[in-house]
Design a protein around this nucleic acid. Sequence first.
RNA 1: GCCCUCGUAGCUCAAUGGACAGAGCGAUGGCCUUCUAAGCCAAAGGUUGCAGGUUCGAUUCCUGCCGAGGGCGCCA
Length: 588
Amino acid sequence: MFEKERGDIETRLKEYLAGQNVPFEEDFKWSSIPFAGEWGIATSFFQAAASAARADQKVNVPQRAQELAEGAAKALGMPEGFGRVEAVRGYLNLYFVASRYSQRVVDGVLAEGADFGRGERLNRRIMVEFSQPNTHKALHVGHLRNMMLGAALANILEFAGWDVVRANYIGDFGKDVLKWVWNYRKHHNGEQPPEDVTRWMGDLYAEANANLENDPAGEKEIEALFHRWEAGDEEVVGQWRTTRQWSLDGFNQAYDLMGIRFDRFYYESDFEKSGKEYVEELIRRGIARDERPAGPVIVKIDELLGSETEEYRVLVVLRSDNTALYATWDLVLAQRKFKDYPDLDVSLYVVDVRQSQHFKQVFKTLELAGFEPIKKATHLPYEIVNLPGNITMSSREGTIVLLEDFIREAVSRARQVSEESNPELDEKTRAEVAWAVGLGAIKYPLIARDHTKIATFDWESALDFNGQAAPYIQYAHVRANSILRKLDGDLPPGAPPAHDLDLKEVALIESLAAFPQAVQRGAGEFRTLQITNHAFELAKAFNEFYNACPVLNAEADVRAFRLRLVAAARQVIANALGLLGIQAPPVM
RNA sequence: GCCCUCGUAGCUCAAUGGACAGAGCGAUGGCCUUCUAAGCCAAAGGUUGCAGGUUCGAUUCCUGCCGAGGGCGCCA
């Protein structure tokens, strides 16, 4: 929030360095001042000292850095709005007059409201592809990590200033799907799904795998279904379409529940035909090698690159029996995205880490084929969710925690805690609270760790709502709201604080002011972690303030300032939770 | 055999190359007659896997080793 102040000081620091004959071209890096418990900005002179050292050999860098910091402090004097300037161990620390800037932060937050933290529009477009559920299977906790990562990332990017396209790529075709249809025709023909559709779809998928193992004719029959589907056989296509829709309805229900929406849906089945045509083109152009019928159609990427290494290896783009596979579709989908959105600057794939090589291969193949825009494609690999004992969640093995079971348990747990801690609530409100808290609790931990870290799911910690968890943040929001509810009438007008600010007030204000940077950093690094961490730190700062600083009972001036501070804190907590797709309930 | 991640407190995780490596959980001791205790406070807990290198400065970058996981011609 203090770009202008920083900019002015930076200009003067550069003038000072130039006057000292110290070559320094880079920008200064600013951070907050550690240990001080006070509010300010800091920068170091090590880089400048190092470049001075390179110019004339004999300089001791730390010593020179301290000299430069001291000199800079002297040259700077006392800039407007700062109360103290010090040079410590090569650092220049500039302490704000907190009373002066605290009003600016609070007023700024309240004026911008839900837009506080929003970046300027970049006029750059990014597509975030995420979720990618497979029809005829059940959604489980592993899918939830992807959904949350993609959804939160899309929110953060949009808030940071990007034009965002939220894309979903539905796996509605392929061998697994036809396997399901095969089993359905054999053992459940004509059956309608029960109320619990997605669970039933998942159960039948596991059943299909089991039945296939005991059925020697199965593979051939499924292959026959493949060809009937391709030929447009009405019976097979009809059954496929009906059963597929059951899954899609279930997915949409889940998306509604989780508060996730998409701008664009792609379906694997749509790329069956164009994918095969593209493979033929690759064969004609000598990029793909056709080994049918003895082998598949392959792209020997390293060979085409003239490379001796095995970095890219071999991509199979069509099976020997002429059926398409994931790579077939992905080659055309990647191009289709740029056809649909010609102004796309980034095409981001949120897909788990096990497919890293696959995307490397697909992107490189398209590059070899001369499709230039593919250079804007990026795979964002995230680690999967395992069960304790490092057991991978697998629909086939049945080692999964169903999304709906997880949601039900979390909401029920949230209701139970709510009943214990706030018995006054009416039934309708209690139900809303239980949903808001239960859903928040399951979402937060999946995006609060770096996406390169494997997440382990266990019921006990998943249902622990204390400490660094969504309910803690929601609770801070509730407490802020609770104070403001007791205020009859409007907030008092903005005014500089007349009292000496409590350390907890300063820390809270500093955290509010830092939110926009957290948004920019999260967007720049494609990391939801920046926002989950900041939301937690903000809530922590508020809880500590709440504990140390009375608001409603404070004397008039103090009360007026703190009421506005509480309102600002409530706003920023809500903004942060909003980016994460987590509700900020008014009561708990 | 090749490629990619990860390794930080007992556990789960943070830390734009920068000052004294921080949180949560668990364990210990306190705080509800003040705005909701899903909270707060206090003390405890570390050779950042190991060894080198680059740098004024390395948890962060590079190399090697050790350990864990993942991927590698017809799964997605």
